[in-house]
């Protein structure tokens, strides 16, 4: 027990938690934006893979890091456009479209990677984002080391939480997005185009997801591996439900989750001899399921989630 306490007060643990949480925050916010507008985006796993590959490849080919992030976001938005042309404009099954996009986007990422680097046996590396120590604040013991010596993308992810909250709850655009997910007829009655609002939300959300994927290859690691997203996208979908579709709760849920994940890695080093490592690796997935079960009863789904909107049609 004492050991776990030691872990909890170590700066390394908190730094790791923030590193793990960044792609989860980005993915969860992205999924949240889509679902708030009424569109389930199961393309997330594939879009994150795509973002991871595109951002990394951009830098490997000589681009700089930030334009790589932008490129990943752009490609993510394109896949969002593909998803919304299917689910929003044609009203096709959001489940199947999402799965299709995940299959397509992740295999396309691998194809492009192999295509551009046919002979890479050991994955080539880039120079990733370096930790940026915020002056003064990073000098605070433990907290400073953990919180204020992160890579810029982590700060970006953390700042996007209040930003998304502000846009969703305090601006007319956010109101329209939320309304498109609750009562699209009412949006239409206001003279706002539901289809455009939903498409925009899915594109922005997908861009977030792609940046979340890019974080993994450009900040957490420095190379692109096959299968490196490893279910993170699906965990984000679970986190959105856990968060009851609220950005603030999404941050808390993601932090809780990442903290347990970081703890798990450290516990593995201590108890690895007794408990096989696979059981530690299972924990994140089992935790996500448990989290969903706990929250499912209280979950207040956006009312129009999964329902396509066709103008002039009564539902």
């Amino acid at each position: 027990m004492l050991d776990i306490f030691d872990i909890l007060i170590s700066a390394g643990f908190w730094a790791a938690t923030l590193r793990i949480v960044s792609p989860l925050i980005l993915g969860t916010l992205g999924e949240l934006i889509c679902e708030r507008a009424g569109v389930l985006n199961l393309g997330i796993e594939g879009i994150m893979t795509m973002g991871a590959m595109c951002g990394w490849m951009w830098v490997y080919m000589g681009g700089d890091l930030w334009s790589g992030v932008l490129f990943a976001a752009f490609v993510g938005a394109l896949f969002g456009l593909l998803h919304s042309s299917f689910t929003v404009y044609l009203g096709l099954s959001q489940h199947v479209t999402g799965i299709g996009i995940t299959l397509f986007a992740s295999s396309l990422s691998y194809y492009v990677f192999r295509m551009l680097l046919p002979n890479a046996t050991t994955p080539p590396k880039i120079v990733p984002f370096q930790p940026y120590e915020i002056p003064l604040l990073s000098d605070i013991p433990v907290v400073g080391e953990a919180l204020f010596s992160q890579t810029p993308l982590t700060y970006l992810a953390l700042l996007l939480v209040p930003a998304v909250w502000y846009v969703l709850y305090k601006t007319p655009v956010g109101l329209a997005v939320r309304m498109a997910g609750e009562n699209p007829m009412a949006v239409e009655a206001q003279g706002i185009n539901v289809l455009s609002i939903r498409t925009g939300a899915v594109m922005v959300g997908s861009a977030f997801m792609a940046v979340g994927g890019a974080f993994i290859t450009m900040s957490a690691f420095d190379a692109f591996y096959f299968g490196m997203i490893n279910g993170r996208g699906w965990i984000c979908v679970a986190l959105v439900i856990f968060a009851s579709w609220r950005p603030g709760k999404a941050l808390i849920g993601a932090l809780l989750f990442a903290g347990l994940d970081a703890l798990q890695v450290r516990a593995q080093q201590m108890a690895g001899a007794i408990i096989p490592y696979q059981f530690f690796l299972m924990l994140p997935y089992i935790l996500s399921i448990v989290a969903m079960v706990i929250m499912a009863r209280r979950a207040s789904y956006p009312q129009a989630l999964l329902t396509p909107f066709r103008r002039g049609e009564r539902t």
């Binding site: 490893n230 279910g231 699906w234 979908v237 439900i241 696979q278 299972m282 399921i289 499912a296 009863r297």
Partner: peptide, 30 residues
């Protein structure tokens, strides 16, 4: 979980894939 607690089956079935695969890995290495 879906019929009794209204937990979305898509995410649970997806996540269980990873759990089961890790369990198989454990059995085969152990």
């Amino acid at each position: 979980l879906k019929t009794h607690l209204k937990v979305d089956e898509v995410v649970t079935t997806l996540l269980l894939n990873f759990v089961i695969l890790l369990f198989v890995g454990y059995l085969l290495e152990g």
